[in-house]
Design a protein around this nucleic acid. Structure first.
Length: 433
RNA sequence: GGAGCAGUGGCCGAGCGGUCUAAGGCAGCGGUCUUGAAAACCGCCGGGCCAGAGAUGGUCCCGUGGGUUCGAAUCCCACCUGCUCCGCCA
């Protein structure tokens, strides 16, 4: 079976495993894991011993029959039947324990790297750096949906009629800026960062959601179709699972991909949070980066990917800060996460616009995705990383809020002008000029 | 939606109840030859789990799960995935 955590490492150093969990605010689990593991192994040994007996007797049966020794033939037949019953019983027990261990490990989050700061929640995150400085306004900046030029092009009422809450209809200049942003980001990553442009499905088989860690624990967060397809909450799911089940050629690593996709999230559990504006939607667009690396280069790749995301904000002249999430605030599959927070003058706050995570072999174990190590000649799990580069809707918000003018128009960053037919501003009436 | 076909080791592919300890090819690794390389030739060359300090041994794996059988890659059933044709359709 494929084990979701390195069971040998847990056996060797259960205290370290529990200590890592404790840093995430979880109670120790090594006792339960190891006792299940010990039982499981005992059954396996018993089952395999019985099976070896059965195989031996089974081989002799044919010989006895051939030489016409009926008494021996019957004796061996009975022996085989007896061993077979033992094997069946022991195997069933082993497989039950195996399943239990698997279920348990499946729901244990990834272990934080040593370099990740300890902490309980977002208050304990640590700022790594800031870029740019918030603009000084000579009027009171408003939130994106309050800007005059935005009001006509960001229609929540119509969206609510169509689809309910947490949806939006974009129109005119705002819609075009939204589209331009996605194109700009893709182009930047493809031409400057050497990521491979990729287009993927947004409906996936259940197993893929297990591979990247959305399932089994977080099924409530995503949409499931009648036919059994899941709607991806991010193209991290499709991009990462491109190597699901594969033994990839080491020469093809690292694989650096970028995709622009629709993302779907039920936002169960976030009722009441960010209900106005388009900060948190059931459907949104994101340009996502994924890297598949070997075990040696994953950590370095994480910094590279963070830089790729930062470059987008810098090109768009949006002030941001980069933070490293503390152990208590990190997502399920991550070993370390950098968040990029963009300055939103309307909220007078930095808000998350990108999350860049290094997952080590956590997802690879779930996917059984490996490469052949050049050093040992043995298959080893790949390492995976994912990061937003960036969330398009939130970038739209940032561009609008940071560029807003007293008259309700919005000045747009130069990098976007070529994508808007040369337009440099969103007029107060919602058109481009 | 209907009908048919298929899923074998890194890849391709044989195999149709008992030396399958899975042929053969490709790729890879080592060697012979060569100034070097290529070619040719020779050899090596799947993965998981369990035990063991190790050498090594055991066991499982031919999409997945059951079943038939003394014995299953091979027969039966269910499921998953893919392909082809038809229908519908951007």
């Amino acid at each position: 079976m494929t084990i979701m955590h390195d069971i040998r490492a847990i056996r060797e150093n259960p205290a370290a495993f529990d200590a890592a969990l404790a840093r995430r605010g979880l109670s120790p689990m090594s006792d339960r894991v190891l006792s299940l593991d010990a039982d499981r192994r005992a059954r396996i040994v018993a089952a395999e011993t019985a099976q070896a007996d059965q195989n031996r007797a089974s081989k002799e049966v044919g010989a006895a029959k051939a030489r016409g020794d009926d008494a021996e033939f019957e004796r061996l037949r009975a022996l085989v039947a007896e061993k077979k019953a033992d094997v069946t019983k022991l195997q069933a027990e082993a497989s039950l324990l195996d399943g239990r261990l698997r279920d348990l490990l499946m729901e244990i989050p990834n272990l934080p790297l040593d370099s990740v700061p300890d902490g309980k929640d977002e208050a304990d995150n640590v700022e790594l750096r800031r870029w740019g400085s918030p603009r000084a306004f000579d009027f009171a900046p408003v939130e994106h949906f309050e800007i005059a030029g935005v009001k006509t092009g960001m229609d929540f009422e119509t969206a609510a009629k169509l689809s309910g809450s947490r949806f939006v209809v974009l129109k005119g200049g705002v819609a075009r800026i939204h589209r331009a942003l996605a194109q700009f980001m893709l182009d930047l990553h493809v031409t400057r960062h050497d990521l491979q442009e990729t287009w993927t499905p947004v409906l996936v088989l259940e197993n893929m959601m297990v591979g990247t860690g959305q399932l089994p624990k977080f099924g409530e967060d995503s949409y499931l179709t009648r036919e059994g397809y899941w709607l991806i909450p991010t193209s991290e799911v499709t991009l990462t699972n491109t190597v699901n089940g594969d033994l990839v050629d080491h020469a093809t690593l690292p694989r650096r991909m970028v995709a622009h996709s629709q993302c779907f999230r039920s936002e169960a559990g976030s009722a009441g949070r960010d209900t106005t504006g388009m900060l948190r939607q059931h459907q949104f667009e994101k340009v996502e980066m994924v890297s598949i690396t070997d075990a040696d280069t994953g950590v370095a790749e994480h910094d590279r990917m963070t830089r790729c995301a930062e470059a987008v904000l810098e090109a768009l002249e949006l002030p941001y800060r980069t933070i490293v999430l503390c152990t208590g605030d990190m997502g399920f599959g991550a070993r370390i996460t950098h968040d990029l927070e963009v300055w939103l003058p309307g909220q007078d706050k930095y808000r998350e616009i990108s999350s860049v995570s290094y997952c080590g072999d956590f997802q690879a174990r779930r996917m059984n995705a490996r490469y052949r190590s050049e050093k040992t000649g043995k298959p080893e799990f790949v390492h995976t990383l994912n990061g937003s580069g960036l969330a398009v809707g939130r970038t739209l918000i940032a561009v609008l809020e940071n560029g807003q003018q007293a008259d309700g128009s919005v000045l747009l960053p130069a990098a976007l002008h070529p994508y808007l037919g040369g337009a440099t501003k969103l007029r107060a009436d919602g058109g481009l000029a």
